[in-house]
């Protein structure tokens, strides 16, 4: 067999559509949903999904320097993990660099309970959240999402698409459930009562 150069896409109607999707994903700076791809490619969503499967087979870890991933409710290209050291020498990652424990706790509140206001975060964490929230908004990980009901209600915040991308989440529903800690309230209460009893003795 002739040793031909590597071809990403062969000919055929679906392959032509896959080439179009490749082009769209290369120029986009944010994940594109199936609906957005269908609108831009002027094709129907079922065919878009089939073409995406073709691309996913080709752009996969270990096979290509570019990987197609399903993230933040859409599809996007990213660099292969194998090439991370080279990428690290070329670009910085200022958004996620140096995220403090306080910032991660605030992100957790917004991701699990969002949209939340600064007083909500302060009530849960026991520390004022103004500086942390402002920092996360500046990094693009939180964004304003309306106000609490009533006149002069506090601004509410939710996590952004960038948050989902950085944490590699298909959506917020991909966050793990936290209700397997159900008996903690009882054990904490027991410990509190034990401390109170010792002090009373």
């Amino acid at each position: 067999m002739e040793n031909r150069p590597f071809r990403l896409i062969t000919s055929g109607p679906l392959e032509a559509l896959a080439r179009t999707l490749e082009a769209l994903l290369v120029v986009a700076s944010a994940p594109l949903s199936v609906a957005e791809l269908a609108a831009a490619a002027d094709d129907d969503e079922a065919r878009i999904e089939s073409a995406l499967e073709l691309l996913a087979e080709r752009f996969v870890e270990g096979r290509s320097g570019i990987v197609l991933e399903h993230v933040s409710g859409g599809y996007a290209f990213r660099a292969s993990r194998d090439e991370a050291p080279a990428c690290a020498r070329l670009v910085e990652r200022p958004v996620e660099r140096g995220l403090s424990p306080a910032a991660l706790e605030t992100l957790a509140v917004a991701a699990y309970l969002g949209p939340v206001s600064r007083p909500d975060v302060a009530r849960l964490r026991g520390v004022a959240a103004d500086t942390v929230v402002a920092g996360l908004v500046e990094r693009g990980l939180l964004t304003e999402a309306g106000r609490e009901p009533g006149v002069g209600g506090a601004v509410r915040y939710r996590t952004t698409e960038l948050f989902e991308r950085i944490f590699g989440l298909e959506s917020l529903s991909a966050l793990p459930r936290l209700d397997d800690l159900g008996d903690d309230a009882d054990s904490i209460r027991g410990r509190l009562e034990a401390v109170a009893a010792r002090r009373g003795a």
Binding site: P101, L104, L107, A108, V109, Y112, G126, L178, D184
Partner: peptide, 8 residues
């Protein structure tokens, strides 16, 4: 708060 810490 403990749940939140687990999330974080």
């Amino acid at each position: 708060y403990r749940r939140l810490k687990h999330g974080a």
